[in-house]
Each structure stands twice: as C-alpha cells, then as structure tokens.
Simulated scan of single mutants.
Amino acid sequence: MPPEINRQDDEDIGEGAPHWMVTFSDMTTLLLTFFVLLFTFAQIDLVKFRMVLGSIKEAFGVQRVTQKGQFPTAENTPFQVFEYQKLDSVIEMFYRQAKIYKELQKAFKNVPGVEILVSERGIVVRAEDKIFFDLGKADIKPEAYPFLEKMADIIKEFPEYKVGIEGHTCDLPIHNVRFPSNWELSAVRATTVLRYFVSQGIEPKRLKAIGYADTKPLLPNTSEANRSKNRRVEFVFSVETEEQTFTRQFREVLRKIESERLKLKTEKSS
C-alpha cells in the first residue's frame, strides 16, 4: 500500500517569492551600495541625502504597482529599466563616473576661478581664461602647466572618456593679424590646450577643440567682473556607451546631490 500523503503539510508549504525577486534584491543591494558611495563622496547631511533620493524615486522605475493576480513581466517589473546582461557594466559605469567626479573635485575645487559641474553634456570643469592665457593672447602661461598636467593625468586615468576643450570669450572685440575676431581667438586657445594634451600622450581621437567666441556668455557682458567670468575654458568629460540612458540618470543624480550640498553649505554659513 502506498504511503499516505499528508495533505495538511503540503498545504502549509507556500510558493515562496517569485523567481525575479532574488535577482531584483541583488540589484537593489548594488544600487544601495552605489548611493552610499555617492554619499561618502558628496559628504552631505544624511537627511538631505535621503531627500535627494526621494526626489529621484522614479528614476530607476521601482515605483510601479503590479495589480493583484498580474504576473510580473518585462513591462511591469522594476527590472524593466535595466537589461539584465548590462547590469554589471551599468554599476561599473556609475562607479567610474563617481570616481572621476571625485578626482576632479580633489584636484581643482580649491583653485580660484574653477568650477566643477554636472550637466547634460557630461562632467564639466570650467576655468577662467586668466589661469591659462593673458588677455587677447593664446599662448599658455608658464604658471598654467601644473593645472594642465593634473588634467592630463586624470584624462589618462579614465581612457573611456572623451574630452572636449571649449574656448569662450567676452564681447570685447579683437582684430589683429593673428586673430581677426573672437572666433579665431577662442578656437586657437582651445586647440593650443588640445595640442598640449596630445604632447602628453593622450590619444587625439579622444579630444576635440571648439571655439565659441562670445556666443555663450554665462553672464551679461555689462561689467568687467562679468566679462572675466565669460572669458573661460571648459573641459567637458563625456562617455559614449550603450548605457547613455543610465549616464543621463546618473548625471541628474549628481546634479541634485551637488545642488543639495551647496544649499546645505549656504545654510551652515548663514
């Protein structure tokens, strides 16, 4: 006679968590580690940091509600934002972007006339032109080379990044044999910096130089102080990968973290 099956015990055994939940839990743990890493880099108040995370709660698609009885699919699970096979590369990309941001902050945040920003274009190091050039000239000043050497070292440390060197002027006109207008001045300045980076062993294909003349002022050209801000060189770090969507999300995270950090700094100083 076959053994009797205990139906009661069988009924007590639940189905357990869905299969996708295990992988999703791993992903959540990795993302939590990533945000803790950002918190360490930014050095902001924990409450402020949580406020930032709350403001981007939908950025990773984890707020969707699955109706009762609805089987999780690629369209209604939190995993829809990520392609499973790309998850490791996405996490690595996040880590690398946080690292280069930290390196740039460490190298240049205390240099007068320098700002480090995160924008849709990438991570931007904005430096006033007087750090590198005399007014109306495009020859690199000797005292600018330590700055450029540090920048070259960081560019070489992160070979996956392309770097755009952008020259900007104010609205003061220039007209001489070498520079018929601000277009030539801004372009030659950007190209001069690019050539220096190439001389330091950086691959030319990773670099580009652009001169914008006075077409992209930061402030109205109504005073010398404003004109000094508008005369600048910008170094734009960008990465071109299949994960560009995730890169844009990360940039938004950093932008909000930096905004909260500056707000907190202002509150403490007032």
Rank of each mutant, 00 (worst) to 15 (best):
V193S: 01
R232C: 07
R178P: 00
D45Y: 04
T169W: 01
T28H: 06
A98Y: 04
Q249M: 14
I210L: 14
E184R: 13
R50F: 12
D134A: 08
Y212I: 08
E240M: 05
I100N: 00
V36W: 05
E75F: 10
F235Q: 00
R255G: 12
L46C: 02
I140R: 06
S238D: 14
S270W: 07
Q105V: 00
K150Q: 14
P72T: 13
S181K: 09
A213P: 05
L135I: 09
A209I: 06
T245V: 08
P3L: 07
F197R: 04
T77Y: 02
Q80E: 10
I154L: 12
A209V: 09
P18H: 07
P180H: 03
L194N: 12
A152W: 03
A209F: 07
L148V: 10
N176V: 05
E58N: 13
I44G: 01
R195H: 15
F133R: 00
P173C: 12
K256P: 01
Q200H: 12
N6L: 06
S259N: 09
F237S: 00
E103K: 13
L148M: 14
G14N: 09
D171S: 15
F250M: 12
I5C: 04
A42Y: 05
V111R: 08
I140A: 07
P72Q: 08
I131T: 03
I91L: 15
I5Q: 12
P217H: 09
E143M: 04
A213S: 15
E166M: 14
E120N: 13
S269W: 09
V124H: 02
I174P: 05
Q85C: 01
I165V: 15
I165R: 00
V193Q: 03
H175M: 06
S238W: 13
F108D: 02
L38D: 11
F179Y: 15
I155S: 02
V65E: 11
N6I: 10
K102C: 03
V52S: 04
F235L: 07
L31T: 12
A107R: 00
I257A: 03
I5T: 15
D139Y: 04
K216G: 00
R261T: 10
L262W: 06
G136I: 05
S223F: 05
I210F: 15
T245W: 05
D88E: 06
S199R: 05
G69F: 05
F94G: 04
Y84S: 07
P18R: 06
E258S: 10
G69K: 08
A187N: 11
E4F: 12
N182E: 03
R7H: 10
L46F: 11
L185Y: 00
S270G: 11
L264S: 11
G167C: 03
I131W: 03
